[in-house]
């Protein structure tokens, strides 16, 4: 981590430690990983903005069905391009130390494709289709049935969409969420 250290001052690291769930060493480690995506660019400017295609080369993101959503949610310019700080923010939320509520908040945004602050029927369909991958297609009526089941279980106020409170309720009751919604640095 020798060369990583030279790019950050002690104050900057302290700053990152205060604002994220990482320790200083972990921040440096994250920067190494970020640098590996585009060595020259990041070598010049440690907080360089990488285009979404570059970010998506990160191993865990490469195969993730929600990769473009993840990038968009964490990108500060909202177009999927991420600076190192955005990347650090992303990793911090996905890290083990982040509490369930924070993870739930971001998961909600990732699943909220149309950005109306509700996970509606179209969002649910999209999630299910992406989960099953490109090789397998559920029939329309099957997806319909699944969506209906999800809403029956979770839509407490019966408005045909999941608000954040309802979504958080599901997450609270799921023991597997913290295990699955996690990317190790």
């Amino acid at each position: 981590m020798g060369q990583g250290k030279s790019q950050f001052s002690e104050d900057e690291l302290q700053d990152y430690e205060d604002l994220t769930y990482f320790t200083k060493k972990e921040v440096l480690y994250a920067h190494q990983k970020f640098k590996a995506l585009a060595p020259e660019k990041v070598g010049h400017n440690k907080n360089a903005k990488l285009p979404m295609a570059k970010i998506l080369q990160y191993p865990e993101l490469r195969v993730n069905p929600f990769r473009d959503r993840i990038c968009k949610v964490f990108s500060s310019s909202n177009d999927g391009d991420c600076t190192f700080e955005d990347f650090l923010d992303m990793m911090s939320v996905f890290s083990e130390m982040a509490p369930k509520a924070v993870k739930a908040e971001h998961a909600f945004r990732i699943f909220d494709f149309d950005g109306d602050d509700m996970i509606g029927v179209s969002d649910l369909r999209e999630v299910i289709e992406r989960l099953c991958g490109p090789d397998h297609k559920l029939t329309d009526s099957e997806i319909q049935q699944l969506v209906q089941n999800v809403l029956e279980e979770a839509d407490l106020d019966d408005d045909g969409a999941l608000s954040f409170a309802e979504f958080e309720h599901i997450i609270d009751k799921s023991s597997d969420f913290c295990h699955s919604f996690r990317i190790r640095l």
Partner: peptide, 26 residues
Amino acid sequence: HVFASKVFCGWDFGIVSHHAAALTAN
């Protein structure tokens, strides 16, 4: 929440290989 947790907690975000991803989707 059987269905809801399958939908929202189904994907293991830690997966990196294409093979494993295909199997998970399957």
